[in-house]
Simulated assay, not measured.
Amino acid sequence: MRGPGGDLPPHPGPAGGPVYLDYNATTPVDPRVAEAMAPYLTDFFGNPSSGHPYGETPRRALAAARTRVAGLIGAHADEVVLTASGSEADLLALRGAVLASGRPRPHVITQATEHPAVLETCRALERLHGARVTVLPVDRDGLVDPSGLAAALAQDTVVVSVMAANNETGTLQPVAELASLAHEHGALFHCDAAQAVGKIPLDVKALGVDLLTVVGHKVYAPKGAAALYVRDGVELEPVVYGGGQERGLRAGTENVALAVALGTAARIAEADLADGAPARTAALRDDLHRRLTDGLPGRVHLNGPENNRLPNTLNISIDGVLGHDVLAVARRIAASTGSACHSGTHTPSPVLAAMGVDPARALGALRLSLGRWTTSADIETAATALIQAAASR
């Protein structure tokens, strides 16, 4: 397998470990990213705001990283606000928009399969700031109906938040159409693109979004590195007050090493997209699906849309088994289910429940997400392990 500009570095995970099919949960740090950030943990330790020579190299590196993140999503460098996580970026977008609006009872719209970072922020805005929140339903593919958004928009709607791609099913929302509707009613549009950035091409101008979340550990950078695109002219209340860093929206001395890591990851992701990585990943995903369908005839069901989804994501249910039981037996792979375990009792994924998936089928769900280091041999190993595990139940 080749990466942009040459051979792909060796897999950074433990040697001899199980096949990793949980890239939507987190990605390993690309060795090229680790190498790029290392000098900023040691030699170039200066504060980028300092006027003396120790601040000069970190300051230039910070600017370059911001430019690379902006390049990946079609933004300008000064529209990129660095944060410590996607959850923080979502908070800045939603709380920032609500508080900056000055409305006594601002209206916020989101949808049922959003990440908890958005849904819980909306609940907090209701509880703490008197916001009125509308949660739109989704159809069986997990899609928001634009007509439903149009009906929900009101004069006091401040911000609409709809993700680009779902973390469990990979469903791709009609973001451009939804953003256009929001703008017709004078509302801002926020898009949590944590799962989509680096997996499919994204351009904030073409999408028409005002705010967009980027998360480093979904694109082979370390955890703790993220960003929020804030369209020029959008007013937000800061999420952290202080020294005025990050356009005054997120105070605190910048972590230059993590910024360099995020910028390097963005540069590699942009090259991967140009080199056809999405199509190669989709081919591997579809091969896994075919192998499972052939090996477990009549028992494998796709959750979510067949075509309108991320190229790396396969969410299936297997009749007659529970997803967590299958994974407990299939020790040669590392993957996840969407269900939650509370005191030994498993409950269906809220995402699949919102899509109207039968509870029994939802409890049989597996989320298999591929990534940069997934190979054909991995797919063969994973399919064999899952088929054997399901057949033994």
Rank of each mutant, 00 (worst) to 15 (best):
P9I: 14
G13A: 14
V19T: 11
L21K: 04
D30F: 01
R32W: 04
A36H: 04
M37T: 07
N47S: 11
N47D: 14
S50P: 06
P58K: 01
L62D: 04
L62P: 05
A65N: 06
L72N: 02
I73S: 00
G74E: 10
S85N: 04
G86K: 00
S87R: 04
E88H: 06
E88L: 10
A89T: 07
D90Q: 03
L91H: 03
S101Y: 00
R105K: 09
R105E: 13
P106S: 11
H107E: 13
I109F: 04
A112M: 05
H115Y: 08
T121I: 14
L128A: 12
H129D: 11
A131W: 00
A131C: 09
V135Q: 02
G142A: 07
V144G: 00
A150I: 05
A151G: 11
V159D: 01
A164Y: 10
A164F: 13
A165H: 02
T169P: 06
G170N: 03
E177C: 09
E177P: 10
S180Q: 09
A182K: 04
A193G: 11
A193Q: 09
Q195L: 15
A196M: 13
V197L: 08
P201Q: 04
V204Q: 00
L207N: 02
G208Y: 09
T213Y: 01
H217Q: 05
V219K: 00
A221G: 12
E237A: 15
V240L: 12
V240I: 12
V240W: 08
Y241C: 12
Q245G: 13
E246D: 09
A251I: 10
V256W: 03
L258I: 07
G263Q: 03
A266N: 04
D272R: 15
D272W: 09
L273Y: 06
T281I: 15
L284D: 05
H289Y: 13
T293Q: 01
G295D: 10
P297E: 14
V300R: 02
E306A: 15
N312Y: 03
N312C: 11
T313D: 04
N315R: 05
S317T: 15
I318W: 10
I318P: 12
V321F: 12
H324V: 15
D325Y: 07
V326N: 06
G338Y: 07
C341R: 10
V351Q: 00
A354V: 12
M355A: 06
M355I: 11
A360C: 14
G364F: 07
A365H: 07
L370C: 08
R372L: 08
T374N: 01
D378I: 09
A382L: 10
A390P: 09
A391W: 00
